[in-house]
Design a protein around this nucleic acid. Structure first.
Lengths: 332, 332
DNA sequence: TTGTAAGCGTTATCAC
DNA sequence: GTGATAACGCTTACAA
């Protein structure tokens, strides 16, 4: 493999000139520039980025920490991060942690060992399982919650959940069930707060029996929904805290002979791509995944370049999308 | 930041010993080992991987090229690749090409410029849009086809499609439609070949009117299915070349008042997670995504380490999963 | 505008 | 087993 010295020799200039021609062409005469480029072509030179990164102590890579890349919402955000990173000349190191703190640590270590310049984390901080982020590691959180600290971009989960419930109430629903994530998950906490607020504003009572706990998987939605089917005083609508659980819940309701939405309305959260193709098409909250990923990457870049952040927190608007899985309360 | 010299000084040994203690502990006495580790602890040393990679001319990273990370099948394969890479001490650089040759090139360039040691490519080679892979770039293809060259792991697409059609024929179906991918896509070619083979073996005639072209998106499945709804002699079953198109097709059939599977059977391909939750649960071909990713990574590792491959091609078994979207032909 | 040369932090090659 | 030291390919003062 040819190196910068070979190019210099071939072009009849010094290595410094070649280096400058590549990274700071302004500082080089047109004549030298031409010679250098011709020489690069002739010897088939490819700059060694490892050497460049090493020398300049910047890896031009960022780690994306995600609990599960197969989650369709996460993968949308990641695609957007990757797109922005590519535009800016950065590489994305994929860090699928599977929710394991030790794997998270291994990836954070990659920035401590200079393989990456920073971290974008795609999850809310769990109380029992907090991320240990060394203070010198640049990090921005995306998809977090009200309790998330540090630079972050998120939506107003509480407000979005409140909108959902307000809409259901406006349709005439009085008993509104919830399929939540795990109780101590910050998303669950924020969205449940929004649910309670809407209820209270409408003068409706909060009934703990109406809260079924899931864990954001389709399977858990499918299971949790069962407890509503056999209830004496069944809710006429169920707000699910993500689309996967909503899809599972709908399946359960159907197998129990309940029609969605005629017998029971169902809403989701996230607006994953299947939301518009499932039966019935899902009423849900669309998170601006594209925008969130892009903004998070831009924030991290600013951090890496040592600039100040205009604001630590960016709360982006979520859109409530009404489709076919909700209607006025009907026959039980 | 402390470096290897600081550790050496602190431990009272040479830098060479520190280096050896870290990368080849066998060659160092227990006494030195202890001194070194204690010193590392005291000075808070983190080895500079950029320097290590630079010096040893190995980046310990691989690029994963994928047309679209949000495709649930691809993301499953990638998760498995990442898992294996992590186990082996390699990082995964995400290369979402969005099907753009120029982005593909940029990522391949990363291995030419030493930022990565090799490439795993997740797509079949397109005739009009072939990947230009320099001969010195180690690469293994996963999810390819019969026409794919170079080291590769794939399933027998033709055989799998034949199994699907044979099953439909065994149920009594005589007119079997297809929603295919783009005509020149190698997956389409292989799967269509399997379809034809099964028809021929059963003495059924191939009718071009029964082939609707899509492009592997849900939306295209939704659209292509329409042409079957209005047909005089409607097929009693439709084989879709992936799950997304099957889901789209089912939606179209339903809105046209056709019951699936009572009026029309539908099959998919891939077994994405949603296949078991859509209505009706989808009969489909399960690709061993996990195994494919792992094997591809292992092959690439062997290539990077300069070892011979036991075989250039690994064809893994696919499993035909019968669910609720297929039944015997019924009323039109 | 250009060239010379000193590193960057590590590993590898020698001696000892 | 260990230590001195020369690379690795590049960037960047500093000098010309």
């Amino acid at each position: 493999m040819s190196n910068i010295r070979d190019v210099a020799k071939e072009a009849g200039v010094s290595v410094a000139t070649v280096s400058r021609a590549l990274s700071d062409p302004e500082k080089v005469s047109q004549a030298s520039l031409n010679k250098v480029h011709a020489a690069i072509e002739r010897v088939g030179y490819r700059p060694n980025m490892l050497a460049r990164s090493f020398r300049s102590a910047k890896s031009y890579a960022v780690v994306v920490l995600v609990p599960d890349i197969t989650n369709p919402f996460f993968s949308q955000v990641i695609r957007s991060i990757e797109d922005r990173a590519q535009q800016k000349g950065y590489a994305v190191l994929l860090g699928d942690t599977r929710g394991l703190p030790e794997r998270e640590k291994e990836y954070i270590r990659r920035v401590e060992t200079r393989m990456a310049d920073g971290v974008i984390q795609l999850r809310p901080d769990q109380p029992g399982n907090p991320t240990v982020m060394p203070s010198d590691v640049k990090c921005v959180n995306v998809c977090g919650c009200e309790s998330t600290t540090g630079p972050r971009v998120r939506i107003d989960n509480r407000g979005a959940a409140r909108s959902v419930v307000e809409y259901l109430i406006s349709l005439g629903h009085k008993r509104i069930g919830v399929i939540s994530g795990l109780k101590d998950n910050p998303h669950t906490i924020d969205r449940l707060a929004g649910y309670s607020e809407a209820l209270e504003a409408a003068g409706l009572e909060f009934d703990p029996a109406l809260i079924a706990e899931g864990d954001y998987t389709t399977w858990s939605g499918l299971n949790s929904a069962k407890q509503f089917c056999h209830m004496d005083n069944r809710p006429s609508a169920v707000m699910c805290m993500n689309d996967e659980m909503a899809i599972g819940a709908i399946q359960t309701f159907k197998t129990h002979g309940l029609k969605v939405p005629e017998n029971i309305s169902v809403t989701g959260f996230d607006d994953i791509s299947y939301a518009r193709y499932c039966d019935p098409n899902l009423t849900t909250v669309a998170q601006p995944a594209e925008e969130m990923g892009k903004l998070a990457m831009d924030m991290l870049l600013r951090l890496i370049e040592g600039q100040e952040l205009a604001q630590q927190e960016n709360v982006l608007p979520a859109e409530f999308v009404i489709r076919k899985s909700t209607t006025v309360p009907g026959n039980k």
